[in-house]
């Protein structure tokens, strides 16, 4: 079942109002803190999927995944795909 446009808009409005209530410190710290949390979850997932992997190898796998993510984020988005969203 697809979410309705009304629901999508309501969620966006709620996120906007929450961001408006944040302090400068909270906003500037959020990016790295969210990265750290995401890395912890990703590392737990890697260890679960590959139990024999050492911590160092798990970190190496995480770095590769993040580099892949970085390249995806850097990819240009065409005007057509924006309008089709």
């Amino acid at each position: 079942m697809q979410p309705t446009q009304e629901l999508i808009d309501d969620i966006f409005r709620e996120r906007v109002q929450r961001a408006r209530r944040m302090t400068a410190e909270q906003k500037l710290a959020a990016g790295p803190q969210l990265l750290e949390s995401a890395c912890e979850i990703a590392l737990a997932g890697i260890h679960s999927q590959f139990p024999s992997l050492s911590d160092a190898d798990a970190w190496q796998m995480l770095r590769k995944r993040l580099e892949w993510r970085r390249r995806l984020d850097q990819a240009p988005q065409s005007q057509e795909s924006i309008r089709a969203d």
Binding site: K27, L28, R69
Partner: peptide
């Protein structure tokens, strides 16, 4: 970059400053 858009918008995870 993302620090400035986090400051003015809805914060998201970022790998770099």
């Amino acid at each position: 970059g993302s620090f400035s858009s986090n400051y003015y918008g809805i914060p998201r995870s970022t790998q770099d400053a």
